[in-house]
């Protein structure tokens, strides 16, 4: 489903050229889960952005369902993303002016889905927030906000879900609950999951892991025990 070959990412700074990613190769099959791990600054978020088509590698190709997105322009990549990918972020990124329900419904409304609010309500119920639909993000705890974000991501029924440290801002107990929910939903929906994490336990729950160190792949994609 995702085919990555030989990607490099360089940025030019005032101190010279910085190699953020070097020679990354990987492939992820439909329904698989992949954890990208590594120390801070090793290039995890950069890689995730490239895989999702939000960013472009300096060289190398990324193909999603056989389509080379690195050959496309920004609009072309946007079209590939539309309706296919979902995101969950470390800082939740809920819109503060919208209620939980509206936050979940927004991407559905953008897709022009008729019963967006109804679908959104169902997904909020699935993450256990059926009673909090009219609450604004500021009225919700961090864990609850991330559950809303999960509902928002899954409500679009994405083929691939990208998550950047989804529990990075949560305490361990809450993080565990979010992880359970993430994997439950993932199993139910059959979504391909690519997530960035610091946490060993979360990485261990993924089918495969990719470890980065200073922009290089240090461990080949080891199969989970």
């Amino acid at each position: 489903m995702i085919e990555v070959s030989n990607i490099n990412k360089q940025v030019v700074t005032s101190e010279g050229t910085l190699n953020i990613l070097q020679q990354i190769n990987l492939s992820v099959a439909r329904g698989e889960s992949l954890a990208i791990i590594g120390p801070s600054g090793s290039g995890k978020s950069t890689l995730l952005g490239i895989l999702a088509g939000l960013d472009m590698p300096s060289s190398g190709t990324v193909a999603i369902d056989g389509e080379d997105i690195t050959a496309m322009d920004e609009e072309g990549r946007a079209a590939v993303r539309a309706g296919h990918v979902g995101f969950v972020f470390q800082s939740f990124h809920l819109l503060p002016g919208l209620t939980a329900l509206e936050n979940v419904a927004l991407p559905l409304e953008l897709q022009g889905i008729d019963n967006a609010l109804q679908t959104a309500r169902q997904y909020l119920q699935r993450v256990g927030l059926g009673e909090r639909v009219t609450h604004y993000p500021r009225q919700l705890s961090g864990g609850e906000q991330q559950r809303v974000a999960l509902a928002r991501a899954f409500a679009c029924r994405p083929a691939i879900l990208f998550a950047d440290e989804p529990t990075g801002n949560l305490d361990t107990g809450t993080g565990e609950k979010i992880n359970d929910l993430l994997f439950d939903l993932n199993a139910e929906e059959g979504t391909t999951l690519i997530l960035v994490t610091h946490e060993k336990t979360l990485a261990a729950r993924c089918g495969r892991r990719l470890e980065l160190q200073a922009g290089r792949q240090v461990e080949q994609l080891a199969e989970s025990a």
């Binding site: 993303r81 309706g83 296919h84 990124h93 819109l95 002016g97 991407p107 953008l110 679009c156």
Partner: peptide, 18 residues
């Protein structure tokens, strides 16, 4: 400025600039 996050989300969801 208050709309920046919303637009970034829209773009990540594949909504075109136009």
């Amino acid at each position: 400025n208050g709309q920046l996050l919303q637009v970034a989300l829209f773009k990540s969801w594949g909504i075109s600039a136009s």
